Every structure is written in C-alpha cells, then in structure tokens.
Deep mutational scan, measured.
Amino acid sequence: KEEVSSHTSPETGIWVTLGSEVFDVTEFVDLHPGGPSKLMLAAGGPLEPFWALYAVHNQSHVRELLAQYKIGEL
C-alpha cells in the first residue's frame, strides 16, 4: 500500500486499488467519463469510497475495463 500511495501523478504513474488488486490507470485518466479530476481523487489509494458514491461503477463492463490495467496484488 505504501508503494501504491507514491503513484499519484503522470510522472510516477497513477495507481489505484480495488480490493487486493492494484491497477495502473495512467493511460485511462484522460478517458474517464467523469473527467480526469474525478479519477485523480482516488490516485494512490482505494477506489471503493468513490465507487460507493457512484453506483454506475458497479457494472461488469466497468470491471472488465479496469482489469486491463491490473499490474499486481497488495
């Protein structure tokens, strides 16, 4: 988790977690339908608090999209 928390910018890579999985979403930030700034709120940390607020994320196609960016496990 400490390593994930240091990845919060395009220069270091933008990493997020979901459960025990780690994702590098650097290439996706500008494609995020809610805008880059919304995704950047989660940079370096867990997606769960944000996904709890926005139910649109609880769809299979969203998880499939995220899976493409998986880089490891906590």
Rank of each mutant, 00 (worst) to 15 (best):
S5K: 15
W51Q: 04
A67G: 14
D30R: 05
V22T: 07
G45P: 03
G45H: 10
P33Q: 03
G34Y: 00
N58Y: 13
S20K: 10
A67S: 12
S6I: 15
R63Q: 12
E64Q: 12
E11W: 08
K70Y: 11
D30Y: 09
R63I: 06
P36E: 04
F50N: 03
L41A: 10
S60L: 13
W15M: 10
K1E: 07
A43W: 04
V56P: 04
W15H: 11
G19M: 09
S60H: 11
R63V: 07
D24N: 12
G35N: 01
G44Y: 03
S20V: 11
A67M: 15
I14T: 06
P33G: 04
T26R: 05
V56W: 14
L39Q: 03
S5P: 09
Y69R: 06
W15T: 04
A52T: 14
L41I: 05
K70C: 12
E3K: 11
H57F: 00
L65F: 02
T8Y: 15
E21K: 11
F28I: 00
V62D: 05
E3H: 10
V22I: 15
V29D: 03
Q59S: 13
F28W: 07
S9K: 14
F50L: 12
V22Q: 06
E3M: 14
K1S: 03
G72L: 10
I14F: 06
P36L: 07
E73Q: 14
Q68N: 08
G34R: 09
F23E: 08
A43C: 02
L41K: 12
I71P: 01
G45V: 01
L65D: 09
V25E: 01
V4S: 07
G72M: 05
N58G: 06
L18S: 13
V62P: 02
N58R: 12
T12L: 09
G19A: 11
A67D: 14
G19F: 02
S6Q: 15
E64D: 14
S60F: 11
Y69K: 07
L66N: 05
S20D: 10
G19N: 07
L39G: 01
Y54T: 06
F28K: 00
K38T: 08
T17C: 15
E73N: 11
I71G: 09
G72T: 04
G13T: 05
K1A: 00
L66E: 02
D24K: 06
V62F: 04
P10F: 09
S6L: 15
P33R: 06
L31A: 06
F28E: 10
G19R: 09
E21P: 01
T8H: 12
V16H: 05
K38R: 09
Y69H: 05
W15N: 07
H61T: 06
H32Y: 10
N58S: 12
L47C: 01
E27G: 12
Y54V: 02
Y54F: 03
G13H: 07
T12W: 03
N58F: 11
E21D: 11
H32I: 05
F23K: 02
Y69G: 07
G45N: 08
L53P: 09
E27Y: 05
E64T: 11
H7K: 10
T12S: 13
A43V: 11
L53Y: 11
A43K: 08
D30M: 07
L18C: 12
G44L: 07
E64C: 10
E48F: 00
V29K: 06
A67C: 09
H57K: 00
E73P: 07
D24R: 06
G72Y: 05
V16C: 14
H61P: 12
V25M: 06
E2A: 12
K38C: 09
G72S: 09
L47V: 08
G19Q: 07
Y69Q: 05
L65G: 02
S9E: 14
L66V: 07
E48M: 00
S9D: 15
M40Q: 06
E73T: 13
G72F: 10
L47W: 04
L74P: 09
I14S: 02
G35V: 02
F28N: 00
P36V: 07
F28R: 00
S6M: 15
F50V: 02
G34E: 02
N58V: 06
F23P: 03
V16D: 02
G45R: 13
G19H: 07
G72Q: 06
G34N: 11
G19I: 00
E11L: 07
L18Y: 14
Y54S: 12
S60M: 12
K70H: 04
G72H: 09
L41P: 01
E48S: 00
V16K: 00
F28A: 00
S37F: 05
L66S: 02
V25T: 03
L31S: 08
V25N: 08
L74H: 09
L47S: 05
R63M: 11
N58W: 11
S60Y: 11
K38D: 01
V16Y: 06
K1N: 03
P49W: 04
M40I: 06
P36F: 06
L66R: 01
